[in-house]
Structures are given as C-alpha cells and as structure tokens.
C-alpha cells in the first residue's frame, strides 16, 4: 500500500506544482485587469476632459492667421505695424468660408481670395503676409497652395453637412447656443454653436468635444432626425 500512497502523494505534488504558478499568474492577471479597469473608470470619471482626438486641439498653422483681426468687432490686443490700436474688421464668417451656407463643407478660402485684399492691405514687412503673398504668387516665387492644419475634424464615419445646420439655425436663432460675444444673428452667431467664439480666438482651437452625444442631444431638442444613417453612411 505504501508505494501506492507515495505515488498518490507524488501526483498531488505534481498537481500543486502546476496549480500554484497557474493560480499566481491567474491572480496577477485578474488583478492587473481589474486594476486597469479601475484606472480606466477613474480616469474616465475625473480625468476628463483629456484632450483626445480633436478636443481642445489647436495647431501651429503655416501662416499665423489671426481670426481676431478679421472677424472680431471689438478692440484687439493686436497692434498694427505703426503701433495704433486695432479694432477687428467684423467680417462675416461666410465672407471667407463661402460654401458653408450652401454645401456640406465650409471650405477654406483660396489663396487668391486672401490676396485680393492683401495685395494692398497689410505691411510689406510683415513676415506672415510675405508668406501669404509668396503662396499667392505675388512675389518672385511661383504660386503654391497653403497646407492649413485642420482643427475641427470628425471621424471618417460621420458625414456632417454644414448647409442644413446653418439654414436651420438661421431660421431659428433662439436655438443658438454659445453665442459669440452676444451675437446671435447671422452666420457668426450660428457658427458659434459648435465652433465657439472664433472671433475672439487668435488661433482657432476646438472648444466643443464634437462627440456624438452632443449631436444627438441637439438633434433631439430640435426634432431633427436621430436615424443613425442620417450621419453614418
């Protein structure tokens, strides 16, 4: 009987030999997974807003284009080359982003449009304007497009159409949120619903997360369709 017992003991030892490391590894990995999960929840809860994919993002643009100078109606920090204080020009958003009221894309103006004014307007010595004039082919160099960095970018699976949103908000100004500097009328007020007060930003940054929740909330409030396929196709 003795050997048999011993044999049995041996097998149980073998069992343990395997079981212990398995348990140890298993326990550790369970702990790791749990830990990761907890960390995940905690950061999700308190960690936001963490700049992820577009949120609060801004870029150094190839030309330092001040939206303030062009779009604001207030006095600016910006000083002209002769030192006199400047007031923003208060140009309408649609002056440059021409297709926003008619097309899906807001559209970046062509260099040609910029140089219509900047052929004459603006100092000759300004480094930024020199870059622009170079791109526009006004100086010696051949004309070339400007590669602006995109600030507001929706993922590829979303089809956003500016036109219908702008049209709706133009007709229902009371639905405009985040109105920029009190402006609720015209494109400037309308745009601010999603883009914030661009006129007061020297460099545009994304102020709204532009996540689907925001879209859907707004769609619900305004009786707009919430059918997935309206935006996702």
């Amino acid at each position: 009987m003795q050997p048999k017992l011993e044999k049995k003991k041996n097998t149980s030892n073998n069992w343990l030999k395997i079981l212990i490391p398995v348990l140890a590894i298993g326990g550790l990995s369970v702990f790791a997974v749990l830990g990761a999960f907890v960390a995940f929840i905690i950061t999700a809860w308190w960690g936001q807003p963490i700049p992820v994919m577009g949120f609060e993002q801004t870029f150094e643009q190839p030309i330092h284009f001040p939206h303030t100078v062009h779009a604001s109606v207030k006095e600016l920090d910006h000083v002209s080359t002769d030192g006199t204080p400047m007031t923003g020009l208060g140009m309408d958003c649609t002056f440059c982003h021409r297709t926003v009221t008619t097309q899906p894309n807001a559209g970046v103006p062509s260099v040609g449009l910029c140089t219509t004014c900047h052929k004459v307007i603006g100092s000759k010595d300004s480094t930024e304007l020199t870059k622009l004039r170079e791109s526009g082919g006004l100086l010696d160099a051949a004309s070339s497009p400007i590669n602006w960095k995109r600030v507001h970018r929706l993922p590829d699976h979303v089809r956003f159409v500016h036109e219908s949103h702008i049209t709706y908000l133009m007709q229902n100004p009371n639905k405009i949120k985040n109105s920029s500097s009190g402006v609720t009328e015209g494109a400037a007020g309308v745009c601010s619903t999603c883009h914030g007060d661009v006129a007061s930003m020297e460099q545009v940054k994304q102020v709204e997360a532009l996540k689907m929740g925001q879209c859907v909330d707004c769609h619900r409030d305004n009786g707009a369709p919430t059918d997935c396929v309206v935006c996702h196709h």
Partner: peptide, 11 residues
C-alpha cells in the same frame, strides 16, 4: 429605418 432601408452602422 423608417424609409425602408436596412442600415449598417459601421461605427
């Protein structure tokens, strides 16, 4: 959906 389409939402 309400327009008779069987929709596939990729995301």
């Amino acid at each position: 959906n309400s327009e008779g389409l069987n929709v596939q939402v990729y995301n």
